[in-house]
Amino acid sequence: MKRRTFIIKGGLGVGAIGLGLLTNYSCQDQDSPMFNEVLSKKDVKMINEIGDIIIPVTDTPGAKEAGVGEFIAVVVQDCYTDEEKKRFKETLASINKMSNQDFMHDFIDCKKEERIDLIKKLDEENKEFKSIKDLIVSSYLSSEIGMTGFFRYYPVPGKYDGCISERPW
């Protein structure tokens, strides 16, 4: 059902690039309200779930708890060029496509083992996935949880030591 919608809308979009861009992606979002102008709530959830596999909860909180999905949605909307937005959404779509091929459902409907299986494959094979992974990592590390929970936080170091043995983060 979803795939058919994709093809029809995609086909219509060929003649008009701008329209095509919008309609191409509406397919995967049609069941989910939008989080912002670019990503749906489902997209945000998906990024958080991918984040949870890449940076899971250990003795410190993971990427999902740090809200990487919500932050990334803001960055993609406000900072990405149209071309980068398009590529970002295509990568999410391609992950779902792979998920549907392998497990007959979208990424967020996957069981944990299936998700790990997919991320392993993406991490090894998919070049575009690296940009999402890097974004998840930097979003985690720049979050309050990342800066104060995962790393040690020194807002006012008070000194410079150019030769210490202990890790400063």
């Binding site: 596999i53 899971p56 250990t58 890790r167």
Partner: peptide, 20 residues
């Protein structure tokens, strides 16, 4: 600085983010 994340994911990968 930090090594930055290499390949992989999960707890071990997360831990590697602290490596110089």
């Amino acid at each position: 600085g930090r090594a930055g994340g290499g390949p992989g994911f999960g707890a071990e990968f997360k831990d590697s983010l602290k490596k110089p």
